[in-house]
């Protein structure tokens, strides 16, 4: 699993890479939930994700909901147009906070 977790001014930035499918979703889910449960804000950087299937998206959804429960923030960064179309299909663009890049995410205080 190519994923890097960085500490960026007190928040976790999870950098994902490549294709996220049924094989990788369980590990992604665990990583995201672990980050959220540590009580910090989380940003997931998708700029180097070439493909994410709905098991990956479901893991994002679950983490977002957990973050809401623990009143931390959970945002997404740099969603590709292809991923965005899928988000829009299920109206997830209305649910997630999506930032164009890390800079604007930090600027927005996410």
């Amino acid at each position: 699993m190519t994923e890097v977790i960085r500490d960026e001014e007190g928040r976790f930035v999870v950098e994902l890479e490549g294709e996220i499918d049924l094989e990788r979703a369980p590990a992604l889910r665990k990583t995201l939930l672990d980050c959220v449960r540590r009580g910090r804000d989380v940003l997931v950087d998708l700029s180097r994700v070439t493909y994410i299937d709905s098991s990956g998206i479901a893991s994002l959804v679950e983490a977002l909901q957990d973050a809401g429960k623990s009143e931390t923030r959970f945002g997404l960064i740099a969603i590709s147009p292809e991923v965005m179309r899928v988000f829009e299909l299920a109206r997830l663009d209305k649910v997630f906070t999506i930032h164009p890049d890390l800079g604007s995410a930090l600027e927005a205080g996410a």
Partner: peptide, 10 residues
Amino acid sequence: MTAQASQLTS
């Protein structure tokens, strides 16, 4: 739901 430029690069 899948998202990628071309499904065929999976």
